[in-house]
Design a binder for these strands. Sequence first.
DNA 1: ACCGCTTACGAAAATCGTAACTATG
DNA 2: CATAGTTACGATTTTCGTAAGCGGT
Lengths: 309, 309
Amino acid sequence: MTLKQLEACYWAIQLGSFAIAADRLNVTQSTLSKRIFELEDELGCLLFDRSGKRALPTETGRRLAEMAVQVLDLVGEIGRVAGRPSELRGVCCFGVSEMVALTWLPKFLLLVRERHPDLLLRPYVDLAGVLERKVVRGELDFAVAPGPGREQDLRRDLVKEVAFSWMAAPDRFPEAGVLTPDYLSDATVITMTDESGLTRSFDGWCLVQGIRVRKTIACNNLTTIVGLTIAGLGLSFLPTAFTESCVRNGLLRPIESIPSFPSLNYHFISRLDDQRDLVRVLRGYINEVADFADPILEWGGGNMNEMNN
Amino acid sequence: MTLKQLEACYWAIQLGSFAIAADRLNVTQSTLSKRIFELEDELGCLLFDRSGKRALPTETGRRLAEMAVQVLDLVGEIGRVAGRPSELRGVCCFGVSEMVALTWLPKFLLLVRERHPDLLLRPYVDLAGVLERKVVRGELDFAVAPGPGREQDLRRDLVKEVAFSWMAAPDRFPEAGVLTPDYLSDATVITMTDESGLTRSFDGWCLVQGIRVRKTIACNNLTTIVGLTIAGLGLSFLPTAFTESCVRNGLLRPIESIPSFPSLNYHFISRLDDQRDLVRVLRGYINEVADFADPILEWGGGNMNEMNN
DNA sequence: ACCGCTTACGAAAATCGTAACTATG
DNA sequence: CATAGTTACGATTTTCGTAAGCGGT
């Protein structure tokens, strides 16, 4: 019996698929299949029922997985206790919301490349809801996205509270004005599409305030929304820090609202059953970079100004 | 990190010697040394201090061993839960007292050879005290010997209570006599040597009875003692079952004593920290054969009778 | 000089991935 | 016919034992 076999069996059961488990362990499906077979062979009992299309774990398999995770946890702890510098290798697929991609991600990638040269990172940018589902399925190792999410059974660690505020092109909103529910119900609001954490937050806010917004433009791309807002197509709620340069350059004006738009908590989202060093270490790095990273975009180039008529 | 590495580190620390640990794991010292080095290399810290002659575990090494044993126990349990038939392989060195060697051992060896053809057994016959020390040192995987022993830190599982009685050649003791302390203090008693469990029991018995035996012949070989007793050189206390054929053939006569000689508990002796399947399974077999095995020797050949003058 | 551990090296075995294959829905 | 898992097979890698080496007592 080897640790690799136990690992293979455990993840195959947790993720419900040989293929996804193989991906996660950075081996081919053939290798994973063989490891599981070896384990079955040694134990002399079937761990999976292969009669159907998918391989379903048997009762024995499930019991084994429960014990296997204890073994794997212990082994991970041994490494930690011995003060191993956690040299991560292989491929790590993870998800980020667009705000994260445009602010924390670059520093994060630099940090990881510096500390773990043999780890290949594959960031995947999408809306929070999509990311969460992919983490649940095991297609992503983790995600950084605004919460609260819809999926249960995910571990969420607060990374940072991100302040949002309403924004508009300066000529679209009275200089000293305050955004009231009344005004809002008549204005065009540019939101992200449904799966987005921002939109979820917005919907909740409207519900609580009793506001019904009539005209919305929904777009799945935050950068585009900023562009549309700068172009004067409507109001939007945007991360304050993220749009700081726009405000500084006079492209956007933050608008006070009553009540103010709530800040949004960004989380490091991972599977509850995922005790891997990979996840633990990268979680730490995300926290590290979230405190300092600035947006990578400088808004306010010539073209933008030309659009802004 | 592999299970083999953890196993190597654990036993090297428990047994205090690479060489003995290697023996126990059925690998060469070179292999064990390399496994430990690989582990140290991966963890990036020393597990042993090699400055002296022996390799002494470092603090980190000791902590690792504590966690490693948990891992190994769990893995063993996984095998058990999955209903593995425990195919034992390699070499197993174990000790038996002479009584055991001449009664239970043959059936035990047959049983093991039948159920585990790939396991090579190396029985080693010696006195209980010697066996115990070798188990402590790790030179023997286990021993079957009469208790109570001297060594602490050994696990003792009762195998069987063995009845003893005083024996003498028929013409050396009055037919209907009863052995009294008085008589005993004047008679020649044939005992085993000091390290023997029988002798320990005898010494204890004398102490409690307040008997001081003046003339003793001490021999380290039970079969020889039987022969000496048959030859009429003195009294001895022998396992009742073991000498049954002698009594039947008129070579020995059991002598009632007041108080009677206590029975002796034979134990399966193993290290407290030894959770291996090997030990667990063989312990079961010993219990199995101890209930049925008869002595392999038939006493009473012609030569013996000639001696008995 | 002996004992205990390490190193060097070659043989044997295991591991792993590509690609072809089978079965299910 | 697309998806999920298995099998075949060859190449790389790992593992292991022999034998020599090395340092400490």
